[in-house]
Design a protein around this nucleic acid. Structure first.
Lengths: 222, 222
DNA sequence: GTCTATATACGGATAGAC
DNA sequence: GTCTATCCGTATATAGAC
């Protein structure tokens, strides 16, 4: 009976059935519907919690509750918290790099693509899923956890630098700029923009910082 | 005897004598020597730990150990973890604002002062004591904790904007720039620079981002 | 593969002696 | 003002049934 009460409690907290039918959803036909697999749900839950609360602020239990999975499942699929977090971080880093690449290699002139990526819709007050991790002492201290973060930033900075070099080649920017340097600056402005916005609680501060950077770039172009 | 063992343990972990002599150090003659007062040591220990581990990552016990104080002392001087953290954050925010003001209102032309503050010696890999807090969910959620962070950034941005306006008045920068906007950009570059450096483990990435921003500014001046 | 039970330590705080 | 003892809950993991 204590058992019954506990099950009900978990049902309420997670909003999921404790015993989901496997056939309810699926990834068949290449169409992604929803996470069905327990392992998959665990990874996604960890991704969310890392974003919201960071690594030190996230407990295995919280992950399990959000995933609608029990202790046993988590420790069956992963060696522990760090292992699951590593899987989640790799996923997050890859997703973010992919989205940036999509915009930066899309249509438009180099400067247009940069502007598009800098001003694209963002969940500003929730911060950057990847950049956030650099503030976590246990992530930075563990190479397995820091590696995906490091690679994501290298990848994004590389893409920015390439587009900036294109802009110079196209005559949109003077050849006095150092693409690698300005790429670091632009990526930093985005990361710092999140910081300013979260400090004030106002997303407009993100936009202000980014617009300032763009005005400096355009000042050079003129 | 269990008692004796516990004391020895604490001695080793904190590197402080459990019963420091009060007369060993002092703040007399206006010369600051070292924290003597237990309350003061608690605040300083919390400042350090907030910097290293953030709010969610810092336990009252850890603070007490670092301060060489017991449970009773902490709960005598403060209502709890949040109360002590608020005191520590106010102190940190004030210190940092003061240091920035010192440089930005010091000697040199406006642009020189900006450059000086952006390139001054920093403990880059340890990150920003204030900006770091914006990544902590419990700090952002608690107005008492977020307020000092918010105010510090307002204050610093205001000072940057003033100096930028001075630079325009002095003819060092064109009047096409928006001082408030560019101030947000420069503060963001610093905050983002910390993120890049911590991601790669390389302080040079901070310098790269800052130098890029300065090169954009100087491009306008020319 | 998933569940429940159990284990040891820590988190955050209170009580009350000295 | 400072200390120790104690409290209840959570963090992280293991054991072993089903």
């Amino acid at each position: 009976m204590g058992c019954r009460r506990r099950r009900l409690y978990r049902l309420v907290r997670t909003g999921r059935d404790l015993f989901p039918r496997r056939s309810a959803a699926g990834g068949q036909n290449g169409r992604y519907v929803r996470a069905v697999d327990t392992r998959e749900r665990l990874v996604e839950a960890m991704q969310d919690l890392l974003w919201e609360r960071g690594y030190v602020g996230t407990s295995p239990r919280a992950v399990q509750e959000r995933a609608g999975a029990g202790q046993g499942s988590m420790y069956h699929h992963f060696r522990g918290k760090a292992d699951l977090a590593a899987a989640a971080l790799e996923r997050t880093a890859r997703d973010l790099g992919g989205r940036t690449e999509e915009v930066l290699t899309g249509a438009g002139s180099p400067l247009e693509r940069l502007t598009l990526n800098l001003t694209r819709e963002r969940d500003v007050l929730r911060g950057c899923r990847v950049g956030r991790m650099t503030q976590d002492p246990e992530v930075v201290a563990d190479d397995k956890l820091r590696a995906p973060v490091d690679e994501a930033f290298r990848w994004v900075r590389r893409m920015y630098a390439d587009v900036l070099a294109e802009a110079v080649a196209a005559g949109e920017l003077p050849d006095t700029i150092d693409p690698q340097q300005v790429a670091a600056t632009l990526v930093a402005v985005v990361q710092g923009g999140y910081v300013l916005a979260r400090a004030s609680g106002n997303p407009a501060d993100f936009a202000l910082a980014v617009d300032g950077a763009l005005s400096l770039l355009r000042g050079l172009a003129a």
